[in-house]
């Protein structure tokens, strides 16, 4: 007899130790998320996967699944809340989809479409952020960083290098690189690192390859993120 719980009326089996997110992903139920990647320890920072259990808001990626719990996911209130979070993310950085090489294969854009965000609502911050193109193979465009810490976790836990970190607090929080100059080229980073292929947005990208994939064949051109899944899931395949 397996354990099970409910997401929006659908019975979802789970095994001990699984989070709501783990069980949902296994069952093919999409809960929007940006900072979660099943290969790394859950972080619970983007809050996009917030669901309701008995009226209580929890992050699906950090909350253990429990026998018989009733989870609300795609309700009007939660989708509205997620859309609000996404709109805030879009104005906090410089996310200009029309010119971005990640467009069509960007998790932020795809989640925004999934949640029905069709236009910005708030005043753009237009923060002044730089580009680090010092590395021969990889470019970092800080304009698009959403502070999901996936590169931080990948570099620390998988590559054992800890090249990336988040410094500063609140609105001052920003991605930093551990090297004498602060530049990627002077760090231990290598383009074959795990950290090079976990970015859900267009912040960490291979150089010289932008727009190589024609419109129509990009990750989310044919099917939505709820069916296609995360960028990182496909990144390893694309690079081979």
């Amino acid at each position: 007899m397996t354990n099970s719980f409910e997401i929006d009326g659908i019975t979802v089996p789970f095994s001990n130790g699984q989070t709501i997110m783990d069980a949902a992903l296994t069952a093919g139920i999409y809960i929007p998320h940006l900072c979660h990647n099943p290969e790394f320890k859950p972080h619970g920072s983007c809050r996009l996967c917030t669901v309701l259990i008995n009226g209580r808001s929890v992050a699906a990626c950090t909350t253990p699944a429990g026998e018989g719990i009733v989870v609300e996911n795609e309700t009007h209130e939660l989708v509205t809340q997620r859309r609000l979070l996404l709109k805030l993310l879009f104005v906090e950085g410089n996310h200009t989809c029309p010119g971005c090489e990640k467009s069509g294969a960007c998790q932020l854009q795809a989640v925004a479409y999934h949640c029905g965000m069709l236009a910005p609502e708030f005043v753009h911050f237009y923060p002044k952020r730089s580009i680090d193109a010092s590395h021969p193979d990889t470019i970092i465009d800080f304009n698009r960083c959403i502070l999901c810490e996936l590169c931080v976790r990948a570099s620390r836990d998988s590559d054992k290098k800890a090249v990336f970190n988040i410094s500063g607090r609140g609105i001052q929080a920003h991605l930093t690189i551990d090297s004498p100059s602060g530049k990627l080229a002077d760090s231990a980073f290598n383009s074959s690192d795990k950290a090079a292929r976990v970015c859900p947005v267009g912040a960490i990208l291979p150089k010289h390859k932008g727009y190589n994939i024609p419109i129509g064949q990009r990750l989310y051109d044919q099917a939505p993120i709820s069916q296609v899944g995360d960028v990182a899931k496909h990144q390893e395949v694309a690079d081979e």
């Binding site: 010119g99 193109a133 470019i139 932008g210 727009y211």
Partner: peptide, 11 residues
């Protein structure tokens, strides 16, 4: 200015 060269045709 300051953008990667491969973005130019699209920008």
């Amino acid at each position: 200015q300051g953008r990667p060269y491969w973005e130019l045709p699209v920008l």
